[in-house]
Design a protein around this nucleic acid. Structure first.
Lengths: 130, 130
DNA sequence: GATAACTTGACAATGATTCTCATTATGAAT
DNA sequence: ATTCATAATGAGAATCATTGTCAAGTTATC
């Protein structure tokens, strides 16, 4: 089957959302991105920000994770698969890779007969500045 | 400082919530637990179910994690620290332990100067029955 | 059994996220 | 360039999980 997904168009709004994320180094919620855009005069509807972010996350262009309170937060992505070490206080984020962990999750899943495996792994802590 | 938390009382409602969780082997949301209680005639207010679940989770008596869509789901707990391998389709859950992972997260955090470390790690997949 | 503190529950209030749908913009093909 | 089919937008309504409110009910203690 060829892709059933509609083609994404690089509209002013989507470019603005992408540009906004470039300015941040830590995770931001859709609401925060929307607010940041309004502040710079780039008016983009809230619904559109939500749509742009989820689309970009689905396409693997940005990272998405859930904060400890369950809100979806996004961040520009470095490309390869990795996890995050996030400061609980100031939000400072460090990208970390763990080949061993990847291997382990795959092994554990296989051992129990699970397929199509995905996983979430986030580390929260207090950074040295806080 | 001694505990500032008020003492928890084993009320009918809290016992009912605990008993309900005992009957399930997989993760359930507060709404689902509430519905299950209503079905058996145990009438417990929705707010109370929420309060009981969060209190039990805070006390470490049950596990809480966020489903892929961000809802809080709970499950009776086996005691020691562990993670979960959850079937995306039927919810079947396997508890898994990974000393290596625990060690790794601690090491990574320390390496970057992060303290008071906690982490979330959940594995999602499709079990052999689905 | 009087009392102070903890609980409960019905319902309102939040707040993030999604949906609706009329209008507009985009890309490809004339 | 003009047309056309389709994707995208935005304002606001609609969802839905979760939390807050507060008066009335319980519980442990003295």
């Amino acid at each position: 089957m060829t892709s059933t997904e509609p083609t994404l168009r690089p509209t002013r709004q989507r470019l603005a959302v992408a540009a906004a994320l470039e300015q941040f180094s830590d995770f931001r919620s859709a609401q925060e991105v929307h607010e940041a855009l309004r502040a710079t005069g780039d008016n983009v509807g809230l619904s559109t920000v939500y749509r742009a972010l989820t689309a970009m996350a689905d396409a693997g262009e940005i990272d998405m994770l859930r904060s400890e309170v369950g809100e979806a937060v996004y961040r520009r992505c470095s490309g390869s698969h990795h996890h995050h070490l996030v400061c609980r206080t100031c939000g400072a984020t460090v990208e970390v890779e763990g080949p061993a962990v990847e291997k382990w999750t795959r092994a554990v899943a296989a051992e129990h007969g699970y397929t199509e495996v995905s996983h979430t792994l986030e580390i929260f802590g207090t950074c040295s500045n806080c």
